[in-house]
Nucleic acid binder design. Structure first.
Lengths: 207, 207
DNA sequence: CAAGTTTTCGCCCGGTAGGCGAAAACCTGG
DNA sequence: CCAGGTTTTCGCCTACCGGGCGAAAACTTG
């Protein structure tokens, strides 16, 4: 989500939301405040620090050090945003201000990595979804197609998915109705990645 | 590596090395400069941003926002450090100043994670080593024992290890002389973690 | 009821981690 | 020089997991 700058520097280029750090808040509280005040995004499903961007000349004028965040909203939320603000596909960004394109690339890479080796998917998916819908979400976020069969198997084996029992209404072209799933609520915070050199004689999967 | 504070605040407590950001450097250049100037650590085998610590009251007095780094030196380097500075096992830290214990815990966790799912081991190991020595390094960093057999297999299968052909001198209690290995130089930068949801029909391991 | 569409599931394959024990290769003491 | 002890190395087995494929299931429309 970017907003189009009206004034110099970098007028008419697109910029990430953000702003200065207040005296009584930490950086995470600050970015949550900025998003709530400026673009009315309050339903963040996941927020994590990305990196500090601190090149001396990253913005003209006085030195500005930025702490960049990765913030996710569920695919079924559609916050109202100001008229100068819009969503952009991360693969086809418009001309961006400052180093914001590099920040977006980093965020995209972080998202793809964490989707693969943690349970971060819950932050993108709506409360209930079909495997096909989840496959689309993962494919979009990862940047390549994944198999619905394999996605369901991997997430199920990790104990992240559970069927709701209901089925989704069928589309206009027919087909077998898809079963609805949800992420198990106990796992709705980001877990550690799968460790490959495990402690002896313990299985830390399947819990 | 911590240094003992002589003055208030938090006199006699132990503190991470660091300091203010200069006007013409970014944060990574700054921490490298601090380590080189203050404690003569110039042989960093790996440096990465850890997180920003920005609680308003994390230090008394004026607001200080810290960008914490994870910095590694190879196990065979022993930089000379000032008299007020010493190495401490991360499991038995002395009383630390400010929030530095939390920073150390985060760094330890990051190190253990990356050792498991990337090739970061090269940053800890000397140029040549036996599997037993490497096993000790990994066990110390991870906090639990790993099997030498499995460690060698996993790292070899990823194409990270290669034998030098030489063998190490035997110890005082005899035993079969251990073969020496090195990390293959082509892999001496941190690679992406192993992706578990791969693009269709491609093997992105073994390259 | 036939043809088409979409989802679901079972089956197989290969690759990978983990564990175990035998064999190899050295030492020292008798 | 051989027996016993020590450490490393290697082969074998098992369990598990990701990936692929195709058949069956369950719906639609004509």
């Amino acid at each position: 989500m970017l907003w189009e700058r009206a004034r110099e520097p970098h007028a008419h280029r697109w910029s990430l939301p953000g702003g200065g750090l207040g005296g009584t808040e930490d950086v995470e509280a600050s970015i949550r405040r900025q998003l709530a005040e400026k673009v009315d995004v309050t339903q963040l499903s996941h927020v994590e620090q990305l990196a500090v961007f601190s090149a001396p000349d990253r913005v003209p004028g006085p030195r500005v050090v930025a702490t960049a965040f990765l913030g996710l909203v569920r695919s079924d939320t559609d916050p109202v945003v100001p008229s100068d603000t819009a969503w952009h596909p991360v693969d086809t960004l418009p001309a961006t201000a400052f180093d914001h394109e590099a920040i977006c690339r980093r965020a995209r890479h972080r998202l793809a990595s964490k989707l693969s080796y943690t349970n971060l998917g819950f932050a993108l998916a709506p409360p209930e979804f079909t495997i096909s819908a989840l496959r689309s979400l993962y494919s979009a976020a990862l940047g390549y197609e994944v198999s619905a069969t394999n996605l369901q198997r991997v997430l199920s084996r990790r104990g992240l998915l559970e069927p709701t029992g209901a089925v989704a209404p069928v589309g206009p072209s027919g087909g077998r109705p898809a079963a609805l799933f949800r992420f198990v609520s106990r796992q709705m915070r980001v877990t550690d990645p799968f460790a490959v050199l495990r402690p002896p004689s313990s299985r830390n999967l399947g819990t």
